[in-house]
Structure formats: structure tokens, C-alpha cells
């Protein structure tokens, strides 16, 4: 038990380094300085997204006491889209477009955090079982997406163009302007989560057991949920909504290190995410000549895993 975790972490770190090197160095032609700068920025974005998705998923799973949920399954990224188009609706296309993107991002994150807390804290306190949780998450996601598309119909076409321009991000078109603020937020959130790693272990025991062990459940969970919302905002803003990546990397990491202890699982999942995203992007771009989009491949694999986990879970009882 002691020997396995560090070994697995080292292996994952080596793989992540390999993926990074491949991403930077494969098919490097022309002006090398320029190409590296371009790739470096995208690499940073991918790493940011990977780390924030992995971290937010683990924290969310621990807080909800459920290994199948991810923030996206519960509709958190739909919330981000809704906040964005809601802002366009409230400020008008011109007002939205003239806002400083970093200010806008910070504002959106704050708004989204507040809404996430308002939505999820009552659900957590009511201690819904998993099926109900999942169902309410799906319904919530549909509701938010429908509201977004309702707003999209109501606003005028110019505003709509601005709104959709703002929400079209992908692995091939990373939002460079937000990179600095997004990486800062990711780092800050990761520091907080890492310092709370032992508390997270306790929270995984459930509300009663953590209260008995002296953890202020409600305050801790509220703070962690706010962090999750901020991390989801980071990844959604940079590359758009991704539903199953978090589930995929966390489940993979958990199998590799064979523990749920956060001191091990957090870095393991972050490294796995880097391997999957950076390595996957390098393979698709250079190995397969851009034959497919990474998001589609990863989401496909993640979706299959989600179904498998759902089956396994229902077979257990």
C-alpha cells in the first residue's frame, strides 16, 4: 500500500512529461521560436483545463459522496453558458463586447459561484440519494440550456453573434486572452484544495461522521463548492463544456493508484488529465493528421465509462 502510490505517481508524471514533450516537439518546422510560443500557450491552456477539471471533479465527488457525479453532469457548465448569455441579455451586445475580457471573466465566475451555491447547497443539505441527485442534475442542465436558448432567441441577432462568439471555444481554438487569469485561478484553487486534502478525506465519510470528527460540514462544503464552480468556469471558458472528461480521468487515476486518499488521488488525477488531454491532442494532431477532434474522442470514451460505472453501481445493490 505504501509502495504503490509513489510508484504510480512517478509513472504518471513520466507519462505526462512525455506527452508534453511530444506536444511541443512533434513536427516542429519553420520558425521554431514562433511555433514554440504558439504551442506553449496552448499547452498551458490544456494543462490548466486538465488540472481544473480533475480537481473540480474529485472535490465534487467527495462533497456529494458519489463517484459517478461530475460538476458537468450536474449542469454546472450549462450554468456557465447561461450566465454568459444572461450577461449579453442584460448589458446588450455592445456593452458585453466592450467589457474587458478579464473583468468579464471574473464577474462571470463570481456570478456563477453564487448561483452554484444557491442551487446545490439546499440539495446537499436535503441529502438526496444518488438517483435523485442525478435526475435533478440532468433536469437542471436541461432547464439552464433551454433558458439559454430562450434568451438567444429573444436578443437581437447582433447580440446573438457576440454571445455565440464568446461561447465557442474548443481544444483547437483556445481562448488565449483569458489564459493568464485562468492559470492564476487554477493555481490558487489548487493550493486551497491541496491544503484541505486531509479535510477532504474526512468529508468523504459523510456529513455525520465529519461533524463527529470536528469538521464544520456546512461551511467547508460551501467553500469547496464555490471553488468547484470557479474551476468549472476556468475550464469552460478556455475550451468549452466537457461533460465526461472529469469522470474519465478521475476513474482512471483511482484505478491506477488504488486509493481515494486525496493526497494521492489529487495529483494522480491531475497528471492523468494532462496525459489524456495533452497526449491525446498531440496524437490526434500529429499522429492522425487532425482526423478527429479531441473533445469528441475523449467525450466518447468518458461517456462509455459513465455507462459502465452506472451499470456496475446498480449491479452492486
Amino acid at each position: 500500500m505504501i509502495g504503490r502510490a509513489p510508484l504510480a505517481l512517478a509513472a504518471l508524471a513520466a507519462l505526462a512529461l512525455l506527452a508534453t514533450a511530444a506536444f511541443l516537439a512533434l513536427n516542429l518546422r519553420g520558425d521554431i521560436g514562433f511555433a514554440l510560443e504558439l504551442r506553449g500557450a496552448r499547452l498551458l491552456a490544456l494543462v490548466c483545463v486538465g488540472v481544473s477539471i480533475a480537481t473540480s471533479t474529485i472535490v465534487f465527488q467527495t462533497v456529494t459522496g458519489n463517484r459517478i457525479l461530475t460538476p458537468s453532469v450536474m449542469g454546472l457548465d450549462a450554468l456557465y453558458g447561461f450566465v454568459q448569455i444572461g450577461l449579453v441579455f442584460a448589458l446588450g451586445g455592445l456593452g458585453f463586447a466592450t467589457l474587458d475580457p478579464r473583468m468579464k471573466f471574473a464577474g462571470e465566475t463570481a456570478l456563477m459561484t453564487a448561483m452554484a451555491l444557491a442551487l446545490f447547497l439546499p440539495m446537499l443539505r436535503a441529502r438526496l440519494d444518488m438517483t435523485l441527485m442525478l435526475l435533478s442534475g440532468v433536469v437542471l442542465g436541461v432547464l439552464l440550456r433551454s433558458l439559454s436558448s430562450l434568451l438567444a432567441r429573444v436578443i437581437d441577432p447582433n447580440d446573438f453573434a457576440i454571445a455565440s462568439g464568446a461561447s465557442f471555444a474548443s481544444f483547437n481554438a483556445v481562448r488565449g486572452d483569458l489564459l493568464a487569469v485562468a492559470s492564476l485561478m487554477t493555481i490558487a484553487a489548487c493550493v486551497v484544495v491541496w491544503r484541505a486534502r486531509h479535510v477532504l478525506d474526512v468529508l468523504a465519510l459523510g456529513q455525520d461522521a465529519s461533524t463527529a470528527l470536528g469538521v464544520d460540514w456546512r461551511r467547508t462544503v460551501a467553500g469547496l463548492l464555490a471553488l468547484v464552480a470557479a474551476l468549472v468556469a476556468v475550464s469552460t471558458a478556455l475550451v468549452g463544456p466537457m461533460v465526461f472528461v472529469g469522470l474519465l480521468v478521475v476513474a482512471l487515476a483511482e484505478r491506477v493508484v488504488n486509493t481515494r486518499r486525496h493526497a494521492v488521488l489529487l495529483p494522480a488525477a491531475a497528471l492523468t488529465a494532462i496525459v489524456v488531454l495533452v497526449g491525446g491532442q498531440a496524437t490526434l494532431q500529429h499522429g492522425l493528421g487532425g482526423a478527429s477532434a479531441l473533445a469528441i474522442v475523449v467525450e466518447f470514451a468518458g461517456g462509455l465509462l459513465f455507462l459502465a460505472l452506472l451499470f456496475a453501481e446498480s449491479r452492486r445493490r
Partner: peptide, 16 residues
């Protein structure tokens, strides 16, 4: 919680 060893569970008693 899942993937928790008995020793780890008992050790939670020392958390306070």
C-alpha cells in the same frame, strides 16, 4: 466511503 482500508478508517478517529 469506497476504497478505504480498515486502518485508514480507524485512523480517522485521530483527525481531531
Amino acid at each position: 466511503a469506497s476504497r478505504l482500508r480498515v486502518r485508514e478508517l480507524v485512523a480517522f478517529g485521530r483527525f481531531p
